[in-house]
Amino acid sequence: MDPTLQSVLLGLTVLFVLLHLAGFLIWVERRLLALMQDRLGPNRAGPFGLFIIVADIIKIFTKEDWTPPFADRPVFVLAPAIIMITALLGFTVVPFAPGLVVMDSNIGVLFFLAMSSMGIYSVILGGWASNSKYSLLGGLRMSAQMFSYEVFMGLALMGVVILAGSLNLSDIVEAQRGMWFVVPQFIGFVLFLIAGLAESHRLPFDMPEAESELVAGFHGEYSSMKFGMFFVGEYMGLTLISALIVTFFFGGWLGPGFLPPVVWFSLKTALFIGFFILLRAAIPRPRYDQLLAWGWKYLLPLSLVNLVATAVVVLIRHG
């Protein structure tokens, strides 16, 4: 088959799967949270309450799509689109199995980092364009949070890049045949996990929306599908971060041969998604100035130390 056509087909498949996955994840999260919280969760519509997804979609599409008169309209509309676009583009560099990648780029890591930084604009612009105080506070918190966490997110990955000697994600997975990078790069893994969590702005890093403080924060003024896009974007961000943790630190598609690589990849990713949901159920929200202080005072220096140490070890071994 023509490679271009193949890429396009694969891209469409990924798009299809991801958009449905986001809807499915909403159900998964609600059921999992309910399980952890001693309650039932949605269990009425259809088998295991699965049809709640359909009901949610119908609801969210038929709600009044209201743009507040005081909002900055073009930006207000643009903001939710950005989060979807960047999250989807982030997936283009993720290798699901050998050769199964939309864009086998040799700057994959950089591309992902660029997309995730762009994604922040969505929150900041959404908070700013809503022109309401709660939204503004949410947007401001997000920008402060991102400044501090973006920095070491990149740095945390550099250890992996040094070990693999490549910025291509498929190469990084291949380099883990001997040992998953979570072992030599454990600190890098923890840092990336934290930064990724902050990036996806979910509890305990959900200061931008902080329900009990800012009501809904940056998306407080959004309704209907614009809100839906933030919502779906959040789940896609969550999936993306899980997929990348697996790719960078847990050997991507690698696994014993009795299951196909793409299944290994999906299983591992699902595990991390579950872990993130568990975190949400378990951990309270720090104050955002505390969060910034931890970021700058501990996590950033730690990521630098990790980077230097990795470089030294690699130099000595190859030296």
Binding site: L33, Q37, D38, R39, P204, A210, S212, P284, R285
Partner: peptide, 16 residues
């Protein structure tokens, strides 16, 4: 109280 500082789950245990 736990919910106000952002911990989601305890309120359900205490209510049950």
């Amino acid at each position: 109280y736990a919910q106000d500082v952002g911990q989601l789950s305890p309120v359900f245990y205490m209510f049950s």
